[in-house]
Amino acid sequence: MTTTVLYTILSLSGLGAVAAMILYAAAQKFKVYEDPRIDQVEEALPGANCGGCGYPGCRQFAEALVKADDISDYYCPVGGNDTMKEVAQILGREVAEQEPKVAVVRCNGSFQNRKRTSIYEGPSSCAIEASLFGGETDCQYGCLGKGDCVEVCDFEAIFMNEETGLPYVIDDNCTACGACVDACPNNIIELRKRYKKDRKIYVSCVNEDKPAAAKKACQVACIGCNKCVKVCPFDAITLENNLAYIIPDKCKLCRKCVDVCPTNAIAEIGFPPRRNKRRNAKKESADQEQSKNQS
């Protein structure tokens, strides 16, 4: 009995030892050299594998970073400047500081503002709807409301608002990875500079139709009237194809354009209520709705 146990133990340990030796030899022979810094860099990255950097995942991004001579063009939008500094330290290279950004939905064509003139029926996907026709409203530029952007977001930073039928961004969660920007077939979502206290001023419209058509399709469409361009003291607003655009780098958030816009197409978010009562009641209600969409 005891001998059986003894032999069993001996033979099994012998087998184990032989196998261990073979494995060790194989590991030595087929060893693939890998830069240890790749692991370090990967450690420093957020590990979200979101693809916001343009690589399939954090590992591939780390490999690219280690391989690159100059990493100033590389940026991890999720980790931001802190992460990039850490990476630069590991690699002993320089990295340019980038401004933090946030995704902004440039359409305010809610159910109230933009009448539905047809009903779409088919797969619930903006991409497919956009390939079929110009959308349920008369504005073929605006939000289709099927939530492709929500689908691709890895950070729970964008949601559909049931009341308005538009997506809204939760600024705190948004990492500006750009997935929603790529997913939107109508290119409504833009990554804009993140201001203090998450304040925002932007033209919440992408309609390039002529004024009459744009206004008919949507109450809060930009009609390209040029008023904001004229009033802007910083030359921050351009007008192209009947559509105004506020350049984030030049805008100083003075809000003069908001006051002159006849259709309330310029969104103003995150500001304290104003003291002067220049705006009429109608405008106020429209504004409230807008901020409801946004925050």
């Binding site: 079929l132 026709f133 110009g134 008369d138 073929q140 139709d209 002529k210 058509a213």
Partner: peptide
């Protein structure tokens, strides 16, 4: 001579 929605569903 203008943009009009035609059978394609686009202007």
């Amino acid at each position: 001579v203008d943009h009009v929605v035609d059978a394609s569903g686009f202007k």
